[in-house]
Computed example of a mutant assay.
Amino acid sequence: MTSRPQLLQDVRIIDLSTVIAAPFASTLCSDLGADVIKIELPNGSDALRGLAPTTPDHALYWKTVNRGKKGITLDVRNPKGKEIFLKILKDTDVLVENFRTGTLDRWGLDLKTLLKANPNLLVLRLTGFGQTGPYAERPGFARIFEAMSGLTNLIGTSESGPQHPNLPIGDLVAGLFGAFSIASSIASLRRDPSQGGFEIDLSATEALFRLLDPLAVEYEFLGINRKHEGNRASYTAPSNMYQTKDGKWVTLVASSDAIFKRLCNAINKSEWIDDPRFTNNPQRCKNVIELDNGIAGWFQNNTYQQVEITLNESDIPYTKVYDIEDVLKDPQVKARQGIIRLNDAELGSIPAPCAVPRIPEILDIPIKTGPKTGEDNQSFYTALGFSEEEINRLKNEKVI
């Protein structure tokens, strides 16, 4: 079998962004073969280097979020740094940045200047609220995007109130949209190179809201303002989390009529099958409390092992709620090598999720962790045409 080239082979991305959302976008592209050069300030002050998880000596989150990238330093605010930056862009497909709206303009790197340096440059601007509107220049973080999109309002219970997940989901979703935007824009430009480069205006808040497809139409047509319901889904039933006799948490979904009938027989509730309260999903949603109480009672009277046997025999969609230890031990994850090892010069290797998606004909290539500050300065600037003496002078002047 012949191997295919990497999906984004020959795509060069300059990543000028910081922290998580936009860097994650370029990392997803790196996973698929793009050549990504990460630019930091000479002092290595990116806030991600101090974000947990860290050890006293190593920024572990940095190593995973920026995996697969080359690392250089350059202060683009410096006149000489700006000159070098524009030179770098001449041989670049995509520039990724996530500064507050107008920041690059103030540094003399407005879109007109960028496109003058490279007329075919794609510029991904990933901000909290986009390049226009009254909030355009506001700062933003993942929890801000999550809350303002309406996502946070769907998480939690009536007792807890709205809750955030213990992970910056807002950043990661925005990064996914960022990678999708890059790939789509490259496809568009390669289909019609005459259109030239352009700006990609990505709002992280809009990216989160894009996930909440039914909420607006549900509100307009039905007057429903969907809220947090704990683990119970308000749109399909039964779909909830239940605790077993031995304290394991299990999430179960039996929302189609066929699966619901199998569940009724499995948990000795066959009388529910013809009960008018439960004959279809809308009726089950209206009577979900009675339904959930009955299912919860069955779980409370059975150990997880008993639950597992019964639900498997009846072909019911369910799973124990995994922690990371469960994920690492799972036979499906192991069979597909869902956790890979990233090569690291300091730690030997570290575990991380595999690249997604998989194309069977594409050979896996080793991935290294995120670069140390300025790790590739010497080779990069030499290839750009600078002598060793010039590189040393730029270092001394804190341009790189």
Rank of each mutant, 00 (worst) to 15 (best):
L8N: 03
L8E: 02
D10V: 07
D10Y: 03
T18W: 14
A21K: 01
A22Y: 12
T27A: 15
C29N: 04
C29K: 03
S30A: 15
L32E: 04
A34W: 00
D35Q: 08
K38D: 00
L48F: 05
R49I: 09
L51D: 03
A52H: 10
T55R: 10
P56K: 14
A59I: 04
A59W: 00
L60M: 12
T64L: 12
V65F: 09
V65M: 06
I72R: 02
T73I: 08
L74Y: 01
V76K: 06
R77E: 15
G81Q: 03
K82I: 05
K82E: 01
K82R: 15
I84N: 00
L86T: 07
L86Q: 14
K87Q: 14
I88K: 01
I88D: 02
T92L: 04
T92I: 09
L95V: 07
E97K: 06
W107K: 02
G108K: 02
G108T: 13
L111Q: 12
L111G: 05
K112E: 15
L115W: 13
V123T: 13
L126H: 00
G128K: 06
F129K: 09
T132C: 05
F141R: 07
R143H: 14
I144N: 11
F145C: 09
A147F: 04
A147Y: 02
L151M: 14
I155F: 09
I155A: 07
G156A: 07
S158M: 13
E159I: 08
G161M: 10
G161F: 08
P162T: 11
P162E: 04
G170L: 09
A174H: 05
L176N: 12
F177T: 05
F177Q: 09
A183V: 15
A183N: 08
I186L: 15
S188Y: 05
S188M: 13
L189C: 04
R191L: 15
Q195Y: 00
G197S: 09
E199F: 13
A204M: 14
E206P: 01
A207P: 00
L208Q: 10
L212W: 01
L212R: 04
E220Y: 13
F221E: 14
L222W: 08
L222G: 14
I224N: 10
N225W: 01
K227W: 07
H228K: 06
P238S: 03
M241E: 14
G247I: 06
W249H: 10
T251Y: 08
L252I: 08
K261L: 03
N265M: 12
A266N: 05
N268F: 13
W272N: 08
W272H: 10
D275Y: 03
P276K: 09
P276G: 11
N281V: 14
Q283G: 02
N287H: 15
I295W: 08
Q300R: 13
T303G: 04
Q305P: 01
Q306W: 00
D315E: 14
D315N: 14
V321E: 02
D323M: 02
P331R: 06
Q332G: 04
K334T: 11
Q337E: 15
I339E: 08
L347T: 13
S349C: 12
P353A: 15
C354I: 12
P360Y: 07
I362Y: 01
P366H: 09
P366S: 12
T369R: 03
G374L: 00
N377F: 04
N377Y: 04
Q378C: 00
S379F: 00
Y381N: 01
Y381S: 02
G385M: 05
G385N: 03
E390K: 11
K395C: 00
I400S: 00
